[in-house]
Design a protein around this nucleic acid. Structure first.
Lengths: 204, 204, 204, 204
DNA sequence: TATGAATGAGTCTTCATTCAT
DNA sequence: TATGAATGAAGACTCATTCAT
């Protein structure tokens, strides 16, 4: 009973924080406002969270790590799969399933990801996008070098990684409906895969 | 003599402001700090500039408008050129010259553009990128509808515009050397043009 | 115990504010000074009060509204009483009791009223005197038109209202002792009532 | 020629100052604004006027002193006249001519007097009204004591002086047209004179 | 758990005034 | 005469954070 109430206060704070951070960004967001919105006192906030950054982290950290793990696993499996191919023509250009999975995951925490993308300035998360770019960028040489007769162009690898991540970000930011997002993502991804093949892969 | 000194103070303020805005973003940038860095009193800043936003604008507005005008002219000319084509195969995939010109212009005010891209939150410029996306997005239907037998896919037009602008932004943000930037931009642009042709143009 | 101390700080702020506002007027009054006088930090003031105007209002609003209600009731009763008269000669020229009552009320918040009269420039209260003039001015036609054979001169009504209110204001401003104020007010009021009868009432 | 231009600047400053002081009051009036309105630089203002207070004085001091002198002369003559009376019934209740004269004078500098009445807070002129009250208050005993068998009630003398001055002030503040002002003032003055006779004069 | 009073450094901005030119 | 750059103190107000209770 008591616990319910207490738990609720924490939840209320997090919901209020989401709103405030989203509306004003990390810096301009006011803890006072958040407390007021949540109908809670300043002190209470500091019972549940260490400080402003911690409050932000609480909203954002879980989903972000989840996505990182998902991606890491994806890249691992991708590497294993491709290393079994022996011809360029056998590459699977259709990545709809993976794309759908990512969208599925991200959209179940869309609030948090929107926060990460739009309201994380002056936070340790402000460059989190770069991490994803880097993960993608790093994975491609491993994948490609697994193929006979091919090596990857470092620079193009970087830029394709950027474009790919940006494509996801654009979808996440501007399309609210999950199914719609999946649908829109697929053709874009097909185009991007062609980019990887044409620009990044170089015949030795 | 005197004039030199006076002129210098304004310049010093602008230089200090660039540094501070870049380092902390618009919001967190402190006018006190800027004045201190410039070796000037608070009042002096308010002699030269109306307020914080005006100081930021002074750094950023000129270059931004210049680019807008450059782009507007480009799109106009592009439309005229293409409308004379009568076959898809005649489309010029090489946009190196235009690309070089944009890079050339942007890099002559790179400080300002970096500020616009990284430090314009809570400024009237915070969505300036969207304007460029929109300009590009809007220009493509006009260009394509000028070609016999083709029409443009609205959604893909939007996403290609996004990717194209993002590509430029990535270069501007991460490559310091102008010539290097030009060199890197060319193949990316070629790839992007292919995207426009493949994804956006639809046979009627 | 604790409560005493906390309560005191708010009180201290209000007392310091009264002093400062009185001495310098609303505009020139400095919140810093007020806090210093009260031995409190700037933030504390903003915990208790929303802003400068709110601090002023806190001192002044209650007493002012009280007086308005008192007057409203007085005018209502006055109207009822007089409407029962049928001859000018029956008008009661002695308003000592009402006068005493108003003085009594006002002097129990004299600080606040002095503030309203001398230090409310640039405040929403700066024209509060006019409101009282208007109340008085509006009430007289109602009263007079209730009497057979008489109507009121609009212009004289306005000026008598002004003089009447001014008479009270002069007393409040310059006489510190409540009993003294009552005593001084009475003959003045008698004279003023004669003015109402002679100048404002017109035989139809 | 040159002098014309220079003279004009001073005039422009004074006109701009009148506007600004009237609109914002002495404190809130900004010298910068005044200079801007006048199309003149800050330095120029300080060539013509010593400082803010001096600028205000320049607008207000002449008319104010003129009125003081007018009043002083009036009181002197009044004293001489009345001292020749030997009966209360011979007192002239009609002061229209004097009233008209004061109104005439005041309205030829109405801007300045409005400034004195509404915008002189924190100025050495902020209590100038009191001076007039005092002049009037002081003159009446002299006048009355010149009459056989009468003496004046000090307190009532003070309050009648207040009411009389207030009556003028109300007219000046709220009636724009000079002739209208004269007309409105006359009956009020008649009433006030009766007050002086009834309340202030006491049979020995 | 939670309160809420209090901190104090910090924010942007405005101002009357000065002074070398 | 007049400029206009520069001063520097002061203005109201906000903030994340702390702590005795």
């Amino acid at each position: 009973m008591k616990q319910d109430v207490e738990y609720k206060k924490r939840e209320l704070l997090i919901e209020a924080a989401k709103e405030e951070f989203l509306e004003k960004g990390y810096n301009k967001a006011s803890l006072r406002n958040i407390c007021a919105k949540a109908g809670v006192t300043t002190g209470a906030l500091y019972f549940f969270f260490k400080n402003k950054e911690d409050l932000f982290a609480e909203i954002v950290d879980g989903p972000l790590n989840g996505l990182k793990m998902l991606l890491a696993r994806h890249f691992r499996e991708d590497g294993e799969q491709i290393s079994e191919l022996d011809s360029l023509s056998n590459i699977d250009l259709d990545h709809s399933d993976e794309s759908d999975m990512f969208i599925e995951y991200i959209y179940s925490y869309r609030d948090s990801f929107i926060l990460l993308l739009n309201a994380a300035e002056n936070t340790k998360y402000e460059n989190c996008v770069d991490e994803f770019v880097e993960m993608l960028e790093m994975s491609s040489p491993m994948v490609i070098s697994g193929m006979k007769g091919y090596t990857s162009d470092a620079y193009m690898s970087h830029w394709m990684a950027h474009l790919t991540i940006d494509a996801f970000i654009n979808v996440i930011k501007h399309i609210e409906d999950k199914q719609e997002a999946k649908r829109k993502m697929r053709p874009i991804l097909t185009y991007l895969v062609k980019g990887w093949v044409e620009l990044v892969m170089v015949r030795e």
